[in-house]
Each structure stands twice: as C-alpha cells, then as structure tokens.
Amino acid sequence: MQTLINAFSFFGHHLDLFRDKTIAHLAISFASIGVALAIAIPLGVWLGHLHRGSFFAINVSNIGRALPSLAVISIAIGIVGIGFANTMVALVILAAPVMLTNAYVAVDQVDTNAVQAARAMGMRPWQVLMRVELPLAVPLIFAGIRTATVYVVATATLATFAGGGGLGDIIVNEATYGSAGVVAGALAITVLAFAIDGLLAVVQRAVTPRPLRHLARRASAAATVREPLPPLPAPPQ
C-alpha cells in the first residue's frame, strides 16, 4: 500500500516527465501503426475483395502472434541498430498481421447476396468494393485496428531497450526513479493501454454504420463460437 502511495506522489511530482515520456510513447506507437495501416489494410481488403490468398492472409496473423516481440526487437537492433527506426520496424512487424487478417476476413465474409445484388444493379467491381463491401466490413476491419493499436501501445514499452524512448524508460530505470517511479511508470502504461482501448471502442462504434451496430456484437460472438482463433491477439508485452 505504501508503495502505491509513493507511486502516486512520485507521479504528482514528475508530471513533466510523464508528459514527455507519454508523448514519445504515443509518437512511436502511432508512427508504427500508421505504417502498418498503410501496408496491411489495402492488402487485406484487396485480397478479401478477390477472395484470394486466404491461406496467406489467415496464417500470417498466426505467425505474427507467435513472434515474441522482444525477440523481434532484438533481431531488429542487430540489423537496423539502436533507435526510433528499429522499434518502428519491430512494431510494424507485430501490428500488421492482425490488421491484415481482420481486413481480409472482413471483406471476404461480406454476404454474397449483397455483392451479387450490387453487381446485378450494374455496379463496377470498384463500386462494389467501395459502396457495399467496405461499409459492411468496417466493424471487423476496425476491430483489427483496435486490437493492433492496443498491442502496439503496450509493446512500445519495450522500445526502451532499443533506445526508442517512451514510458518504458521510467519502468526500467529503477536506479534513477526508485521503486516508486517504477510502479508509477507501470501504472501509467497500464492506464494508457486501457484508455486507448476504451477510446477506440467508442470510435469503433462511431464508424460502424448504424444498422450494423446490433449485428456487430452478435457477429463477434458467433465468430468466437465457430473459430476461437482470430478474436484474441497476443497480449500486450
């Protein structure tokens, strides 16, 4: 209990430190998520639209989940060297597979009746994708983005070992900040991870087309029953 009180008083006395580290933490997280988004979402949506490459699109996230993040970071240090870029490489490798698989599954599983109706109405493939498949796939695509984002924000803690900065710097520097600082840093990261998750839950609801909102919940429950693999990604590191 005393540790907790000390941690809170440490937090109160070092607001500037926490602000700077949180900004650095979010910077590396969002830079990585941006790159991962740019690679994974178009590829996943495109493969899903063509209904091709299911083996690749689904198994890539099984492999992505199996990769130990610290190991990926350590290999990346060897190849890229210490710094921001290194951590980004590792985080992109860890975030992209989840996004890719979800985007693929989301577009691939869009009701064929809807797609055929759209074609019968004379829509071009591009229009089918933009007006029918994507709106119907948004909830699941965004679920993947949310999962990956929470994962990246949590894993960015390990960036400290690669000189990437962020809140991990406080956690691993007991010599400077003491055990109160370590606990305060740990709590700050935990709160940040939960806050991002909650925030994205709200955004996810907002981007889901209104008629799909009640369906989205039921669909995710059904997906859990049929195939328990996709919904749970690796826990944050």
Partner: peptide, 28 residues
C-alpha cells in the same frame, strides 16, 4: 537478449532472438 543488448554484443542477442522466434514457431 538483455545481456547482449546491455553489452552491445550483437551475436548474443540476435542469436537468442532467433532462438525465441524458432521456439515459438516450432511450438505453434
């Protein structure tokens, strides 16, 4: 991995990293 990163000896942490990845993939 931590030992190698601390001392900067690349082979040590790269090798351990690859072993961890291999272990995960083999277990999977």
């Amino acid at each position: 991995i931590f030992d190698g990163i601390q001392t900067g000896f690349k082979t040590e942490f790269v090798a351990a990293g690859f072993l961890a990845v291999a272990l995960a993939l083999v277990a999977d």
